[in-house]
Write a protein that binds this DNA or RNA. Sequence first.
DNA 1: ATGCCAAGCGAGGCTTGA
Length: 304
Amino acid sequence: MQALLEPTLVYQTGHGQQTRPWVFAGAPGSAGWDTLKWLFLPPDLPMSITLASWNVNSVRARLEQIRDWLYQRPVGVLALQETKVVDADFPREAFGSLGYCTLSSGQPSYNGVALLSRTPLSEPAETAPPSLIQDCRYLSAWIPEGFYLIDIYAPNGESLQSAKFSYKLAWYDQLTTHIESLLPKHPKIALLGDFNIAPADLDVHDPEAWQDSVLTDARARDALRALERLGFRDAFRLMHPAEPIYSWWDYRGAALRRNEGLRIDLILLSQALIPHLQEAGIDTGIRHHTRPSDHVPVWVELEP
DNA sequence: ATGCCAAGCGAGGCTTGA
């Protein structure tokens, strides 16, 4: 088991230089933050970090699998989607014993997002629009590595004719507008989660069969382009421009056996983070475990 | 065209997902 990370702060006082474990739990913008930020946060990434995202389709049903996976890949940050649990019942102790602190935004039965991190998570001072966070599809946090995490579980949309598809497009509009307002102050943003959009035909096992889908529709893909116009890039595609690989396979039929999947779980990095991108991958093997989620974890490695 | 499979809720079968 990995040891719990306990960063040590070195700070200057009237009595000289002192050292203590990391105890500052304030948010950016709170009293003392600016001083601490400049004392303790280097201008660039202080160390390598791996960020991952996984739609687990119920965090309680998948707890043992998540723990097993974290032993194999002890990521710095894990963004979860479809946790399907209220915050009071989120299994934070189970992750705490693995060295992770947790922020969660959950409701009964449906949706729900959570961020796990080995370094302290702080709630950002900026509040997202209520309509963006009301159905537990959006969660943001600061980590002391110096950047902003945004975990999303985008609406699926059901069908092109459905009101849910209009909602999906409106939801993405709000997301993009909100992120645009964050970027001037927070240029380093990792936007990760279940986007419910396959960015290109390469990300779809049978583009013809899926051409009228809410996951591949041009208006949905335009939502990704709006994020690209803000400088975000799909980290996996930057590293692997031509590899057909998927992150989701339908439970039904023989979708997995036939490799009938789509790549809809993404990690987008803002322009300021892209130079730090070292590698990106998708842990497809876990889909073959017993009682799997229908999604698998996706990850990126960032280097100083 | 519809079900296929899985989870929550709650105690049967409905709702939702992608």
